[in-house]
Design a protein around this nucleic acid. Structure first.
Lengths: 364, 364
DNA sequence: AAAATTTAGCAACAGCGTTGCGTAATAGGG
DNA sequence: CCCTATTACGCAACGCTGTTGCTAAATTTT
């Protein structure tokens, strides 16, 4: 494992990203806002703001006259200065979204995919979809790339799909590489749940603590945001949350073990008892909280979003009922505000994040 | 949440820490070794090495003559240039260790603590223990501080013990502050399991990927090393791994839920069936792997270390037997090489890490 | 003894945030 | 109307970082 060397260009990118994060989450801001949020000196912030303004990423938006003294210049992010396209590849559908620099979803489109689609079929669907999206406005020069959120297992670092569950033609497919050639765009590949939690983190900004995205949709998975970054695990395989055992004497799961959260939940759901299914999921969520001590749990996924209130109240109730959880152990439970777009939007945001997000130093 | 600003002093500390990490894990090293490991230019490494040598942290240790050309100067860490003392505070015992800059444990001592000991009693025990340890060599000026690894819940950021489980006199005790006053040393307070995983990570160096320390000792806990840093969670409460439900219809646990890993494991152990208890723990470990995708699992704790082989083979077997785990999903399972000292040593290492470890940018 | 090779370091440089201080723009008071 | 206090902002010099260009030193090979 080689670590990235830290030179002055890192400082530049890091502090620039801090200012961008303020701009993204604060609506409008001025120099003093950034000074307070980052600890940089006013002069340093001036330099950063000058660079960002020159790049067209932010712009002046009037002045604020708080009374006495010279008015402060108010700045705002320029949302339409950069775009990214996100794709959510599921077993039967492809969802594409267009996201701007502020993290706002502008267009969303779902198209069916053939059963057991091949890499070529996916690429064709991506190509036509991307062309349509890019043609909506004139995005030349402002499109930073395509993000793909997909079912695993896959290898994020190398852009490789190892074995997409339930898809026969997907073994060791270098999807990132061939998609970049086919589309002529930078492509970023990640697991669906990891992309999803990135969307939530980007939109919430610096106040977003350790969190998980719980995804119930043809299986149960989880995406993690820990210590200010996504957690993918050693082999991009973190989040197989549905295959944790919650009932040692439970029914046998497709994975070979007994009483996995996913199979227990599925049995309850198939019996039509949504409330029971939600309570089973809640047990798993509390397990996560005990293990990872999360500040925020976001619920998502097509199957869950059919009964959002049932799941939300079951999970919230289980979290609050846990006797071990004192008042200071606060955890917010919410349903994703992006709804069905969360994975695709997160995939797009990951592309934006590579350019305008806070850079990491350690490369794994 | 304010983020730490990145200035040139950060670069200095970061790259210096990279070189120290090489020195700690490589035994001896030369300039070219560091260049390869870090990506810095040779000239930059020369400057860093000069600084570290001036501080007495590393020293020349001969030359290497690889054939043609000028011989390369070989350097080595100076282990006895800095020390830290680590304390493992358990319910009935206090363990103190003296650790040098290389992470080597020099002295280890266990003393009993009164039942339901008070903060004052602990401070007295710490004071006498620290005096004894510091008097072994002449450590004036080379002692960086005291690290305390303790049962939770506690607040790492503020050095506050919230409610130590099973200890009546420990509610909202500002232990770090009062210990610093009482001992005249910098004090670092953290949860026991988090301290333990830090010891493992520090000793393994940069090759240490995402990992967990599984601790079986009057309860079951886990410490996490994720993304190159400890994971403490939103309220320093991560690792309550023993209170994750693995058996929905299992016996009631002290925490109020049914079928927690800890109570199921305890029942098996009390029945004298160590092998069964180990298999129960193994189910929990595989749950962790599914969730977090770890590269390394370290086993520790007094109860586990009474039957290390039984637990090691049960966990290793369960990890390998998991049908979902393909060949590329490799996970190393080991018993901690530090044995019973792992928590105390880790607490000491956390102090060293604050000074000579890789600095983090985000402050939570 | 000369050439080739490898290591090491001096000196100048570019780029970052910081510091010192001057300037611009406003409101309020005499 | 002018002066002062206040607040915002930026130029210029500075210290520090890692980088680059180049020279010197130490060794083996020819």
């Amino acid at each position: 494992m080689t670590r990235v060397t830290a030179d002055v260009t890192f400082l530049r990118g890091y502090n620039q990203a801090l200012v961008m994060a303020v701009g993204r989450t604060a609506g409008t801001f001025e120099r003093a806002t950034v000074v307070e949020a980052t600890g940089l000196t006013p002069q340093a912030v001036s330099k950063v703001i000058a660079r960002l303004t020159a790049d067209g990423l932010i712009r002046p938006a009037g002045v604020r006259r708080p009374g006495i003294g010279k008015p402060a210049v108010v700045y705002e992010l320029v949302p339409d200065s950069r775009y990214a396209i996100g794709a959510h590849v599921a077993r039967r559908t492809l969802r594409l979204v267009l996201v701007d620099l502020a993290g706002t979803v502008h267009h969303s489109a779902v198209s069916p995919l053939p059963r057991d689609f091949t890499p070529e079929q996916l690429l064709d669907a991506l190509a036509t979809g991307v062309d349509t999206m890019a043609g909506v406005g004139d995005l030349r020069g402002r499109l930073t790339g395509l993000g793909i959120g997909m079912i695993g297992p896959l290898d994020h670092a190398n852009g490789l799909v190892r074995d997409a569950h339930g898809l026969r033609h997907w073994h060791d497919v270098p999807l990132r590489e061939i998609a970049e050639k086919h589309l002529g765009l930078p492509v970023h590949l990640d697991k669906d749940v990891t992309a999803g939690i990135t969307a939530e983190a980007w939109r919430h900004g610096a106040t977003f603590g350790d969190a998980a995205l719980i995804m119930v949709e043809s299986g149960i998975g989880a995406g993690f945001w820990l210590g200010g970054a996504t957690h993918r695990g050693a082999h991009t395989n973190a989040g197989e949350f549905g295959h944790t055992v919650v009932d040692l004497t439970g029914p046998r799961c497709v994975c070979g073990r007994h009483g996995c959260l996913e199979i227990v939940h599925q049995h309850a759901a198939e019996a039509g008892d949504v409330a029971h299914a939600a309570r089973v999921l809640a047990v798993g969520v509390v397990n996560l909280l005990q293990t990872l001590d999360l500040a925020h749990v976001v619920l998502a996924g097509a199957d869950l979003l059919r009964h959002p209130q049932t799941y939300l109240s079951a999970v919230t109730g289980a979290v609050q009922a846990d006797a071990r959880r004192a008042a200071w152990l606060s955890t917010r439970v919410t349903v994703s505000s992006l709804g069905a777009d969360v994975i695709a939007a997160g995939a797009a945001i990951q592309v934006l994040d590579q350019h305008y997000g806070i850079p990491a130093l350690a490369a794994s």
